[in-house]
Design a protein around this nucleic acid. Structure first.
Lengths: 99, 99
DNA sequence: TTGGTATATCGGGAATTATCGATATATCTT
DNA sequence: AAGATATATCGATAATTCCCGATATACCAA
């Protein structure tokens, strides 16, 4: 876990918003109900909700994933992203104890 | 507490290093022993140890202070900086619970 | 195979950050 | 008052980030 990379990923309003939305997928992405939420939420849903371009959202999700904060699963044409809660727990502990 | 500002302040190797040094002032800044550590460590000591210019360090300390992570106390010609542990505890909790 | 949909990657312009040297300000000493 | 010391602020350049449109890639459907 590269601390600087993690904090950079968190240094953006839109990315923080996305992470927050992903805490409650069924609440924030009801359009995806028919797919279920086990793998997370697909890029397109996030893009529409964020109101940024597809390329920007794709890039943001990649950076969050590189930081370890989310994970992805490709299913057919879709890529689903979900939070990696262990990473948040680890980060919380890191800040509490080491930084 | 503006989350983005806090994470930006943490998104830099040198600033993380400074914060870490300030966890144990007496260990990392022994030259300052004769002044005591109650108000923290003065800018000059941090500057020498970091190996960056005085202006850069001053700016870094300001940004950490704007983020609420450290506080300062002017005493004579010196400005002492120390960690604001409550801010770290709050940040840890924020990451654990809200972000 | 042809086309349609979802996502990723590339290239770029504007905005922000990193870091410096120079200068200003505040305080201390004499 | 005059110089010395510590810190803050200013101005500048290089590097990075933000966010876009265009294009490439992967998969699906007919």
């Amino acid at each position: 876990m590269d601390h600087v990379e993690v904090f950079k990923a968190l240094s953006n309003k839109s990315r923080l918003q996305i992470l927050n939305w992903l805490k409650e997928p069924q609440l924030n992405f009801p359009e995806q109900a028919y797919n279920g939420y086990e793998h997370g939420v697909c890029v397109g849903q996030i893009q529409v909700k964020a109101g940024l371009t597809q390329s920007t959202i794709s890039e943001y999700l990649s950076s969050l994933q590189r930081a370890g904060l989310i994970s992805s699963k490709r299913v057919g044409q879709w890529t689903y992203y979900k939070r990696n809660e262990e990473a948040f727990a680890a980060l919380s502990k890191l800040i509490e104890q080491e930084i």
